[in-house]
Design a protein around this nucleic acid. Structure first.
Length: 660
DNA sequence: CCTACAGCGTTTTTT
DNA sequence: ACGCTGTAGG
C-alpha cells in the first residue's frame, strides 16, 4: 500500500478515538478501507465485529467493494457496512420487542407520516404550517429526546405545542406498529441508554466503528456512536467541516468539537493533500471557503499541475445556459475523447434540470438524472410496497388505506369512514376490523363483501409469500392484483403506461439483486424503504445530472456548475435567514468535484411562475481569484452557429414536405 | 361513484 | 405555465 504519512498514521492508529479531518479528495475512503484491512489482519478482529457507517447506501456498497479487493477470501461480506439508518433498522429487527414493536413493523416514509400529522392537526392547515411543526418534532427526535423530555425542554408555546403533538404522533405510530426515519436512530439510542445488558452485548458485537461523513451526523447519531463505541472510544470518525451541507436537516457540525470535549484523549489527524483536483481548481475552492469562519484550519494542496483555467459562462437565460452547456459537452467529448460519464452538470435545486434535459436531448448527449421524483416515490412502486407492508404488518393502516381501493374495489370514503370508527372503538387495525363480523353487520352487503374480499386477498398473498422468493412474489403480486390491467385503465397515455410498467419490472429487478439467502419479502421491503435515489444502479455511460447535495463524495473529469446566481446559489431563502456559510460550503463541494475542467455558468434572466426575473452573478464568483477565471460572455459565434442549424433544419423539413 | 373544471401552490437541499 | 386537489354536478 502506498499511503502518504498522514493517511498511514490514520489507518494504523488504533490506541483510542480518532478524528480524521479529511479535505475534499484527500483519499478518506482509502484510509477507511486500509484501516479495516489493518484491523482484521494485524489486530485480528473478526470482520463481523467491524462496522463502517456511511452516509448513503451507495457509498456503503462502494466501500464494501473496495474493502473486498483488499481483504482475503470473503471477509468483506461479513463486514457491517451500512448507513446509520440501516444499522438502526438491523438493531430494531433484533431488539424490536424491547422497544414495544412487533415483528414485521413498518417504516413510514414522509408521505405516511405527513398523513398522520394531517389527521392530528386542525383541518385545512396549510402545507407549510404542517411542514414547520412536523419539522419541530423531527428536530426533537434528532436530538434524541423522548416526548416527555421534549415537553420539559420546550421553550415557548410553539415548542410546547410541538412536544404535545410529538406524543400523540408517537402513539399513532405505535398503533400502526410503525417507525419513521428518525425512530431508526432514536429508538436504538434510547434502548442502549436505558438497558446496560443490551448495551454491553452490542459493544461486544461491534468492537470497532468507522464513521464516514461525520460532519453530517445529528445529535442522536453521535450519541448512538458514543454508546456503541463505549468509554474506550473504539472508533474512527472521518469528516470535513467544510463539507457540512445538511444542517437544515438536523445535522450538527458541532459534533466535530463535541468529540474533543467528550474524549480528551482524542487524536486528530488532518489529511491535506488532495489527489483529485488541479491546483487552479483547488486554489479557487480554498479562496471561496476562506470566507467562512473556521474552527479547524486546513490547507489543501495538490501536485497535479496547474490545469486549465476555470471558465465562467455568462448566459442570456436558463435555456441559453442549457444549450451552451449541452453544446460544449457534445463538442468536448469528441475533442478530448472523453466518455459521457466523465461529465457532470451540478445545480442547486432539482427544478433546474428541466431546460438541461431538453437541450441534452437536442444535442444527442445521453444523460442520467439522479433525484427529482425518485423511483421509489413513484405511485405504482409505493402501491406494491404497501402490499408487502400490509402482508407483514397487519397493523399498518397507512398501507391499508393506500391500497384498499387500488386497483378499484368499489370501497369508497363512506365505507372507510365507518370502518375507521369501528376500528377505533375496538382498538383494531383497519385490516383486522375489515375481517371482523361486527363490521359486516354495520355495512351494506356490497361494501361489506368488498372489504371481506380485500382481507382474503391479503391473507392469500401472505400464504403465497411463504413459498416464493421476494422477486417472484412481486411478479405474483402484479398478476394477482391485476395491477397492469388497472394501469391500462387508469393511464390513457401509452408511453406513460409503458414507463410505469417498466418501473414495476425494475422493482422486481431490485428484489432480485438485493436477495440474499433467508431474507423475506418484508425484510427487503424494509431495506428498500431506506434506499434513496442516489442508490440506483450504475447508469453506465451517460452524463450525470444532479444536485450539489447528491454530488458530495463523487468526482468527475468535467464539471459544469450551473445557476451560479444570487438567489439560486446562494439560495434566496438562505440569504434571508443568514445561512450563507452553508451555501458557501455547497459551492465549495461543487468546485471540488472537478478533477480537470471546471465551468461555472449563470443566467442573467430566468422565468419563474410565468414572470421574468433578472439575476446578478453569485457573490461566490467574486470570492474566487480573478486571474484563474476565464469569463466568456454571450457566445456570438455559437449563437450564429445555432441559428444556422435551426435554419437548415427548417429547410430540411420544408424540403421533406415538398417532396410529399 | 365518476367527470370536469377551477384554483392554488410550485422551486432548496434528503437519510 | 402547469399539474394536482378539491368540489360541484351528473
Amino acid at each position: 500500500m502506498s499511503l502518504n504519512p498522514a493517511q498511514r498514521a490514520a489507518a494504523l492508529y488504533t490506541d483510542g478515538p480518532l478524528l480524521v479531518l479529511a479535505g475534499a479528495g484527500s483519499g478518506k475512503t482509502r484510509v477507511i478501507t486500509e484501516k479495516i484491512a489493518h484491523l482484521i489482519e494485524k489486530c485480528h478482529l473478526a470482520p463481523a465485529k467491524i462496522a463502517a457507517i456511511t452516509f448513503t447506501n451507495k457509498a456503503a456498497r462502494e466501500m464494501r467493494e473496495r474493502a473486498g479487493k483488499l481483504l482475503k477470501g470473503n471477509a468483506a461480506d461479513e463486514l457491517l457496512v451500512c448507513t446509520f439508518h440501516a444499522l438502526g433498522l438491523k438493531f430494531l429487527q433484533i431488539e424490536h420487542a424491547a422497544v414495544g414493536l412487533k415483528r414485521g413493523f413498518s417504516i413510514f416514509d414522509a408521505d405516511d407520516t405527513q398523513a398522520i400529522y394531517k389527521d392530528l392537526l386542525p383541518k385545512g392547515i396549510k402545507n407549510d404550517q404542517l411542514y414547520a411543526i412536523a419539522n419541530l418534532v423531527s428536530r426533537a427526535k434528532n436530538e434524541g429526546l423522548t416526548p416527555e423530555q421534549a415537553a420539559a425542554a420546550a421553550l415557548g408555546a410553539r415548542e410546547s405545542e410541538a412536544a404535545e403533538l410529538y406524543a400523540k404522533y408517537q402513539k399513532r405510530l405505535a398503533a400502526f406498529n410503525a417507525v419513521d426515519f428518525d425512530d431508526l436512530i432514536r429508538l436504538p439510542l434510547a434502548l442502549l441508554d436505558s438497558d446496560e445488558k443490551i448495551c454491553a452485548a452490542w459493544r461486544e458485537r461491534l468492537r470497532y466503528l468507522l464513521v464516514d461523513e461525520y460532519q453530517d451526523t445529528n445529535t442522536a447519531q453521535y450519541r448512538l456512536l458514543k454508546l456503541l463505541a463505549g468509554p474506550r472510544g473504539a472508533f474512527t470518525a472521518v469528516g470535513d467541516d467544510d463539507q457540512s451541507i445538511y444542517a437544515w436537516r438536523g445535522a450538527n457540525p458541532g459534533n466535530l468539537d463535541e468529540l474533543a470535549r467528550d474524549y480528551p484523549q482524542l487524536k486528530v489527524i488532518k489529511l491535506e493533500q488532495n489527489y483529485r483536483c488541479t491546483r487552479r481548481i483547488l486554489r479557487a475552492a480554498n479562496a471561496v471557503i476562506a470566507n467562512n469562519p473556521h474552527a479547524h484550519l486546513k490547507k489543501l494542496w495538490s501536485d497535479l499541475g496547474e490545469g486549465a483555467p476555470i471558465r465562467v459562462l455568462e448566459c442570456r437565460d436558463d435555456e441559453h445556459e442549457a444549450e451552451r452547456v449541452a453544446g460544449e459537452i457534445a463538442h468536448l467529448a469528441e475533442k478530448h475523447k472523453a466518455r459521457w460519464h466523465e461529465f457532470a452538470i451540478l445545480y442547486r435545486g432539482n427544478f433546474q434540470s428541466r431546460p438541461l434535459e431538453k437541450a441534452l436531448r437536442l444535442a444527442r448527449v445521453p444523460y442520467h438524472l439522479t433525484g427529482g421524483t425518485a423511483f421509489l416515490e413513484r405511485a405504482e412502486v409505493k402501491d406494491l410496497l404497501a402490499y408487502l407492508r400490509l402482508m407483514v404488518n397487519p397493523e399498518d393502516d397507512a398501507a391499508f388505506l393506500r391500497i384498499v381501493n387500488m386497483p378499484r374495489r368499489d370501497i369508497g370514503a363512506t365505507t372507510l369512514e365507518k370502518l375507521g370508527e369501528l376500528a377505533q372503538s375496538r382498538g383494531l387495525s383497519l385490516l383486522r376490523a375489515a375481517a371482523s363480523d361486527a363490521i359486516l353487520k354495520q355495512l351494506a352487503p356490497r361494501p361489506a363483501a368488498a372489504l371481506v374480499g380485500f382481507g382474503e386477498l391479503i391473507h392469500e398473498l401472505t400464504q403465497t409469500a411463504r413459498r416464493l422468493s421476494a422477486a417472484d412474489l412481486v411478479d405474483a403480486l402484479i398478476r394477482r392484483t391485476r395491477y397492469a390491467e388497472y394501469l391500462a385503465e387508469q393511464v390513457k397515455d401509452q408511453a406513460a403506461r409503458a414507463r410505469r410498467l417498466e418501473n414495476l419490472n425494475e422493482l422486481a429487478g431490485w428484489f432480485r439483486a438485493m436477495q440474499r439467502e433467508g431474507s423475506s419479502a418484508g425484510d427487503l421491503a424494509a431495506q428498500l424503504a431506506l434506499l434513496t435515489h442516489a442508490d440506483r444502479a450504475d447508469p453506465g455511460n451517460a452524463a450525470r445530472l444532479m444536485t450539489l447535495h447528491s454530488a458530495k463524495g463523487l468526482e468527475f473529469r468535467f464539471v459544469y456548475l450551473i445557476g451560479v446566481e444570487e438567489g439560486t446559489l446562494p439560495h434566496e431563502g438562505s440569504i434571508e435567514e443568514g445561512r450563507l456559510d452553508e451555501e458557501r460550503r455547497l459551492m465549495y463541494v461543487g468546485i471540488t468535484r472537478a478533477k480537470e475542467h471546471l465551468t461555472l455558468s449563470f443566467a442573467a434572466r430566468k422565468r419563474r411562475f410565468g414572470e421574468i426575473l433578472t439575476n446578478d452573478p453569485s457573490r461566490f464568483l467574486s470570492e474566487m481569484p480573478r486571474d484563474d477565471l476565464h469569463w466568456s460572455g454571450r457566445d456570438v459565434e455559437q449563437d450564429q452557429q445555432h441559428a444556422r442549424e435551426l435554419a437548415s433544419s427548417h429547410l430540411a423539413k420544408l424540403a421533406a414536405l415538398l417532396a410529399k
